[in-house]
Design a binder for these strands. Structure first.
Lengths: 355, 355
DNA sequence: CCCACCGGGTAACGCGCGTTACCAACAGCG
DNA sequence: CGCTGTTGGTAACGCGCGTTACCCGGTGGG
């Protein structure tokens, strides 16, 4: 506890070592310390005092005050990311990718959850409070990350700094975005099945209106068309994006042609549905991949890597999208042109044991 | 000021509006603006100038500079959390709980990943770089969060500021920590099985040396002892903490007494192993929960909520631990005494359909 | 001998804000 | 009348640092 002049006690606040302390300790001016610490090459400091200063830094355990530096230099070295991912962790790898990349660029990533506004007042926009908080910290750029690929509306204040969307796109403007190449993913999945000799393929579809479903299905059709085939509409069934939904859809598909003509492969548009499909297949005494090959989408590790047999699936490149988002932001803040308004990121096929 | 078509005015925000600009616009001194914005009750500002200032704030779209405020007031309103969770997202709810609580306390949570030091140099300690970064931001308190309950070593610099450990404990010191009450969790799980009429219970154990295994097993034994029963050592099998490990262990347990005496319930010490156990049970033509009741631990949503039947399991209170960590930190920074060096948090039973 | 130049530094300003000390005007009171 | 409060403010300092302008003592060139 420390005492003020009035005698009252306040929480102890360690008086930090400042550049002035370092300067005194080294017997030089604070300016010299600043020059040495910021490695200015055009500053003329002799090698001897330079080492003396560095030694003082070590001895005193000096640690720069990032806030003061930001204030004086007018750059914070921070990016902010507004995301619902913290509360819906499915796509947490976006944060990881972004954070790693930011770290490489010697920048810091400030993470703000996008759904906490209701904690302060019911009428505030969801992301607005988070965005505002980040701007108060004077972030140099903003990222918005969604848990699933969709269109979003970004608060107006986002226009004050460079902004990039990750795993979502600007529903009403021209903000640059990074999204998965759903179509190529659908294509590669079905190509893999074709390559395995499957020509009759059932599809367990998501809500047909969301971008993921549209793209993946389109890709699937392309792959089939390239082989001179097409989807049997009877074998494309939508369901809730859950294991139960996948189970129901799989039952429907597997039982559709009792007389013969049952598909030999199932393309499940997400892994949770594939999980349910497994049950439906096993229930019927069929084996995976012997009787029915299954391929998923998303690569949700907890599911895909632990199902038995392990699920072959198409991965959503979350980490890569996060990194690319930061790179794009870096280009924007540096005033460089970016490659495209919308960057598509490849969805690689992960071979396991279900095909 | 900009006007919309409806004639309502919308603040046009531009970077660089300072308190001085607001003061000029309102025709008062900057001090007056500061007083109004920080709501000092002992400052004497007339109601009229107060509204004039607030109006100027609106019109100019003034946004405080958090860094400058922190510099002048010598408090940042930030806590820092060092965590491996970003890279191993299992326990991401810790972050959510901490962030929500911090938000309620009008504080901000700075998240630093604990494994990025190798990006700058191979010789730096893992958490050290992250901790250092946070201290440079002048966080007022530090949290360390682990993905699984264990002992950890924290960098020495953490001592400069109040520190609380979440889901881990200080292996060599006296830092306060928040951990799940594994023992009570094991007890409640087995009590539930007993209540269901099960007296012969198989246990799929984790690595027997980790705190989670020790506590949960101890709790299980307590519950049995209270009913005058005890574990059959032949029915306690350790395995890798994966679905495959659970499958193997379950096979072992289920086939141990071919002549009769097979357990009617399985206590799986985590949900991934329960997932594998499901397969072993189904393979043998047995039903869940009809023939074999299964109870898990961890409540890993992606698994527990999607297995068929849905898995009854004991939840790890990640979110609550995160919140409690922040509360404890708040008490520490305010100089208040904390309840205990180690706070145990209850692990509630989540009833689904597997018992 | 004077002057330009260069190496090696330092003084001083300002970033945006919290905070303390102070000041002017006016009312109430004896 | 002087004195004391009270109301409604303002001037000025400093937080820790980046940055610019400047200074001083040598040195080489003319």
């Amino acid at each position: 506890m420390a005492k003020t002049t009035t005698g009252e006690t306040v929480p102890v606040r360690q008086r930090g070592v400042t550049m002035k302390d370092v300067a005194n300790h080294a017997g030089v001016s604070r300016t010299a310390v600043s020059f040495v610490l910021s490695n200015r090459e055009n500053a003329s400091i002799s090698e001897e005092t330079r080492t003396r200063i560095n030694q003082a830094v070590q001895e005193l355990g000096y640690r720069p005050n990032a806030g003061a530096r930001a204030l004086a230099s007018r750059r914070s070295d921070w990016y902010g990311i507004v995301t619902e991912i913290v509360t819906a962790p499915f796509a947490v790898d976006i944060i990881k990718g972004a954070q790693d990349q930011a770290w490489l660029d010697r920048r810091f990533l400030l993470i703000a959850p996008s759904d906490q506004a209701d904690a302060v007042g019911p009428n505030e926009g969801l992301e607005d409070a988070a965005t505002e908080k980040l701007l108060e910290q004077r972030v140099e750029g903003l990222l918005y990350a969604a848990t699933f690929h969709r269109g979003v509306h970004v608060p107006a204040s986002a226009n004050e700094v460079p902004t990039v969307l990750i795993n979502c796109f600007d529903a009403d403007g021209k903000l640059p975005s990074i999204v998965p190449d759903e179509r190529a993913g659908g294509r590669v999945a079905v190509e893999r099945l074709l390559q395995g000799g499957h020509t009759r393929i059932g599809v367990i579809n998501l809500d047909p209106n969301i971008p993921a479903a549209v793209g993946r299905l389109e890709g699937a059709r392309e792959a089939l068309a390239a082989a001179g085939l097409e989807l049997d509409p009877e074998l494309v069934v939508s369901g809730y994006a859950t294991a139960d939904g996948g189970y129901d859809a799989a039952c429907h598909i597997l039982d559709r042609y009792p007389e013969g003509g049952r598909p030999t492969a199932l393309f499940c548009l997400n892994d949770r549905m594939a999980m349910g499909a497994y049950d439906a297949i096993k229930e019927r005494g069929l084996t995976i991949p012997g009787d029915i090959a299954v391929i998923g989408f998303d690569n949700q590790e907890l599911i895909a890597a632990y199902l038995r047999p392990k699920l072959t699936t198409v991965a959503l490149p979350f980490e890569r999208m996060g990194a690319l988002g930061v790179q794009t932001l870096a280009a924007l803040t540096a005033g460089q042109p970016i490659l495209a308004d919308q960057q598509l990121v490849d969805c690689p096929l992960l071979e396991r044991s279900s095909v």
